[in-house]
């Protein structure tokens, strides 16, 4: 759900207010980079794509009629960029090479192993399941927003989230049982 102040930022940015667009960048940089990084399989590529997506958004902001839909519109641009470069389609299995930001705390070694396994399993998901699941899980996206961002109908979006979670659960059952 988009916050009321974000609608105001979008309206101001449409009028050419750079600071308002800066606030939007601040708001969506992290989730967009995380999503693209995980889909592209490489952090740097994710950041490059995010930068390009924001540039496209800034240039074409006047074409956005409904400020409420900014988030969906931005992610749709990012997805189109990802697919146009072909990175998203060939990134399967590369995800495990994304290095962590910092060295892991010494007492979190076991946790790190579990997280690595989760990252590997997510990386091995087919792209159409991966992109929707990562988007669904990271923020309060509704199925209709997901469908719009990814160019699907709502029932397909529901089915893909269902399937992605089912596959992951099947593969990580033992680890989740240990965790519980």
């Amino acid at each position: 759900m988009i916050a009321p102040e974000e609608i105001d930022w979008v309206n101001r940015a449409k009028l050419g207010d750079r600071d308002a667009f800066g606030l939007l960048v601040q708001q969506y940089w992290q989730p967009l980079c995380a999503w693209l990084g995980r889909l592209a399989g490489h952090r740097q590529q994710g950041e490059d794509l995010a930068q390009e997506a924001f540039l496209k958004a800034w240039v074409n902001l006047s074409q956005l009629h409904e400020p409420r839909a900014f988030r969906v519109w931005l992610f749709r641009i990012a997805r189109r960029l990802l697919h146009s470069t072909g990175i998203g389609d060939r990134s399967q299995g590369l995800l495990r090479h994304i290095p962590a930001d910092q060295p892991p705390p010494a007492d979190c070694i076991v946790e790190k192993e579990g997280t690595n396994r989760l990252a590997e399993e997510i990386a091995s998901l087919p792209t159409h399941y991966r992109e929707i699941y990562l988007l669904w899980v990271q923020d309060e996206w509704t199925f209709s927003e997901l469908a719009e961002a990814l160019g699907l109908n709502e029932a397909t979006a529901r089915w893909r989230v269902h399937k992605a979670r089912q596959i992951l659960l099947e593969r990580l059952k033992d680890w989740l049982a240990q965790e519980s």
Binding site: W29, Q30, P31, C33, A34, W35, G37, R38, R43, G46, E47, I98, A100, D101, G114, T115, L118, A119, I122, Y133, L134, V137, Q138, R165, L168, L169, L172, L176, E179, S180
Partner: peptide, 16 residues
């Protein structure tokens, strides 16, 4: 649990 861990994975992907 699965969703929580995936969220953490995405949050670890910090980028300013």
């Amino acid at each position: 649990k699965l969703d929580q861990h995936t969220q953490m994975l995405l949050r670890n992907h910090r980028s300013s």
